[in-house]
């Protein structure tokens, strides 16, 4: 069965390592914070100027001067620091962030990503996504495998305006874990109960299947 959003987040949490500095994007990526293993220290960065994001505040304790990049009220963990936006992007651009997790509208088999603009529809802006994808050492995309109409989001070429080129390394969807390789999307794991046939059918870009593909352990 396909994973729900929390399932995708749980699988991505397995990619974390002790001591990692991680930037989580808005949406499914944010949920990864709920599944950090307890024996692991992972520091979450927010590009508006916080290293060490804590849980949401208790009711009545929200501080308007303490928000995350999604503009939600948050808290800061012990040992956190605050800084300006230029310093924040020095962390990102300078390669100091170990892992970036973000959402996407489309990903191409070459690792291009489109995540910020649908022409003629919504105008939001790229925010920090272009900086993150251009500089992160390791990028994981968290997304559903298909859009609401059932069209594949894993394409030969992106059709929407790009956020970055040849930058995505790994994709975790509701159906599979895939790596971007020179020859296309390499299937690494299947969601529990999901067949390789279904993944093949729902992947428009080149899909590489080598041997038996194991199921994710969630």
């Amino acid at each position: 069965m396909a994973l729900d959003k929390n399932g995708i987040a749980k699988r991505i949490a397995q990619e974390l390592k002790d001591g990692y500095y991680v930037n989580l994007g808005i949406g499914i990526p944010t949920l990864v914070a709920n599944y950090i293993p307890e024996d692991m220290e992972v520091i979450l960065q927010s590009e508006n100027g916080l290293l060490g994001i804590g849980p949401f505040p208790e009711k009545g304790k929200a501080d308007p001067d303490l928000i995350n990049a999604g503009k939600q009220t948050v808290t800061a963990v012990k040992g956190a620091s605050f800084f300006d936006s230029a310093t924040s992007f020095a962390m990102i651009r300078g390669g100091h962030i170990d892992l970036t997790v973000l959402g996407a509208f489309e990903i191409s088999e070459k690792g291009d990503i489109a995540s910020w603009k649908i022409p003629g529809k919504l105008v939001k802006g790229m925010g920090g996504a272009m900086d993150l994808v251009a500089s992160a050492k390791n990028i994981i995309v968290a997304t559903t495998h298909t859009d609401k109409k059932g069209n594949s989001k894993l394409l030969k070429e992106c059709t929407l305006p790009l956020t970055g080129v040849s930058c995505v390394k790994r994709i975790v969807t509701d159906l599979a874990v895939l790596d971007v390789t020179e020859n296309g999307f390499k299937l690494i794991e299947r969601a529990p109960g999901v067949s390789t046939e279904e993944i093949k059918e729902k992947t428009e870009g080149n899909l590489i299947i080598e041997g038996d593909i194991p199921e994710m352990k969630i």
Partner: peptide, 10 residues
């Protein structure tokens, strides 16, 4: 006023 855009609590 220090308005909060998305008040999110535990």
């Amino acid at each position: 006023e220090k308005r909060i855009e998305f008040e999110t609590v535990r």
